[in-house]
Structures are given as structure tokens and as C-alpha cells.
Amino acid sequence: MQKVNRDVLLEKAAAMLDAGEVQAVLGWGAGEFAYDVTPRVFETSDELRADFVWNDFCGANLSKYLVSKTKKLEGKLLVFLKPCDTYSFNQLLTEHRFEREKVYAVAVPCEGMADVQKLKALAGDGISSIESTDSGFSVTTIYDDAPVEVKGADVLLEKCANCKSRKHVAYDELLGDEGEVLDSNRFDEVERIEAMTSEERFAFWQGELSRCIRCNACRDVCPACTCEKCVFDNPNSGAENKAPTTSFEEQMFHVIRAFHVAGRCTDCGECSRVCPQNIPLHLLNRKFIKDINTFYGEYQAGAEEGSRAPLVDYTLEDLEAEDVFKKEAE
């Protein structure tokens, strides 16, 4: 259950809208069910009061929308940012993807967001209502079964289960209390795979990547993927492809996708959250982050606005490519 409740966010946004301090509000809108939340731009306080939501299903990172939405507006846009979203926000600013003065960033503390799939796996597919309880959720279904009690910790999104930080790194205003950068276990799974033999790793990734349907959701949702025209959509790039026609194309797409955001990926976890096939795409990104940390020193993309990404930087004493595996073995 989130510590700061919906009304606090709502009143803040409604007041600023009514006072004309912001022209619109970028937030989360209600859907058909308790859990299907859609990012939405609200233009009046009436719209906000009717449809704005802030609950345990607001996993969507709104920062990428700033790129397109600020261009459409004359005035300011109020945006709600969870701690992890603020890293993306900073990174986008570093890359000059939107104008800072057109945004009023409101930071919201986050206690972790729930994964509907995990919830459904425990409670059943036919959810009729979800009540928040102290420890998680009480879920009733349409099957006449008794309500199912689910622990919040059991149904966290992957990105939240391995949350790296509850600290907001950028905002104009903070609602509630500031959190801390956490000691997460986010590299554990990467290490587990690194410990496998080459054959095992190959088999592991074949199994995962073979599910890919090339819907491009991972790319399109990624706040670091803001190219006007992606190389995979450009018929003249020689890399355009719409279907995972062979296992090579799957490997190619995912390596290049992850490589292109290496050093710029804030580990916001959106790629894995939206993957319809549940491919653990964040592991590819985390591998790069982990390597960058090991080879070139600790670096967290987005932690500091204007910081130089490791791949557009170098030192004279950098590790030689041939020493990569020696370093890893250490």
C-alpha cells in the first residue's frame, strides 16, 4: 500500500491546474479494472477527479512521455515521478530530450508496484475486486471462491522486488518523505547466469529469446530509446526486420537494443514489465551496468543530470578487451 494516498496527489495537481500554474497533468488514468492503469494527460481538474488514480498498479514510468507531450503544450506540464522514474527523467534531461522549464516534476514516494500477472497466478484469472490490506491484497474472484489474501511482497514487479533506490534524484516538489538509495540484490541473477557454463548460458538465452514476438514493446516503452527513427525500423539500415525469422534475428535485436542503451539505461525495468512473453530483458541491461561498474567504476545513469555516460567517455588506462574475462574472474 502506498504511503502517500491518491488525494494528496490529486489535490496538488488539481490546485495547480485550477490556478493555471500548469497547463496539463501527466499521470495515471483509471481503466476497466482495479489494475489496468493507463498513462494519461489530464487537462481539467474535473477530469482528474473522475479518472486520476494512484495505487499499487501505477508501475508505468511516465518520463518518456515528456518528450512528445511537452512539444505539444505551450505551458507547463505537471508530471508525477516515482523514485525510479526520476532517474529516467534526469537521463532524458542529460540527453536534451525535453525542456526542463516546461515541466513541473512532482516526486512521489513509492513502496513498490504490483505485478498483475503474479497476482493472477496466486488469486485466479477472474478478479472481480482487489482490496488493499496492511500486508498486501485481498482478492475476490468471479468463481464464488473465498477471497484470496496475497502478500504484497509476493506480487511485486521485478523492478520493485530489486528496487535500487527510493531516493528521488530530481523534482520540483516532493510529496511525502524522501527515501534512500538501497543496497539491492539486482545483480544476483546476472551473477547466477555468469556462473553457468557457456553452453548453459546459450541454452538459457535461447529458451528466453525464442519466445520473442518482436512486438517492439521493450523498445517503444524504454525511456532511453528516444531515437526519432530506430535502426530496426529503417529500411535503409540493412537491419530492418519485423519478425524473429531466425534465432539469429532474436539475438541481434536484443543485443543491439541493450547495447544501444548501455551506459544510458537507468535500470527502470520497463522493458521486462511490458514484455508480453515475460522475457527477462532487464538482465541484458543489468549485465552492461554490472560490467560498466566493474570495468570503469561505479556509474548510475540518471543519478546526476549532465553526467557523462561511460560509452562516450574513456580513460587512457582503460581495461583492454582481452582482459575482460580476467577482470570478471576476479
Binding site: 546476472v190 547466469i193 555468469e194 557457456s198 553452453e199 548453459e200 548460458r201 546459450f202 541454452a203 538459457f204 538465452w205 535461447q206 539475438q251 543485443v255 541493450a258 547495447f259 548501455a262 541484458l284 549485465k287 552492461f288 560490467d291 560498466i292 570495468f295 570503469y296 561511460p310 560509452l311 562516450v312 567517455d313 574513456y314 580513460t315 587512457l316 582503460d318 581495461l319 583492454e320 578487451a321 582481452e322 575482460v324 574475462f325 570478471e328
Partner: peptide, 30 residues
């Protein structure tokens, strides 16, 4: 001036990633 310094970082990361995906590390070299 500095092109090969960038190459060094890029290839270090790429080779490591290919290894992570289970591609034999001996197949690539800088």
C-alpha cells in the same frame, strides 16, 4: 585522436555481452 579508446570500451562490453549470451568468447578479438 581518440577513436580507438571508444572502441576499447565498446568492444570490452560487447565481447562480455556475447559471452554472457553463451557465444564462445574466443570468436571475437580486438
Amino acid at each position: 585522436t581518440s577513436g580507438n579508446y571508444y572502441t576499447r570500451r565498446r568492444m570490452a562490453l560487447l565481447f562480455s555481452m556475447l559471452d554472457f549470451l553463451g557465444i564462445e568468447r574466443e570468436r571475437t578479438r580486438l
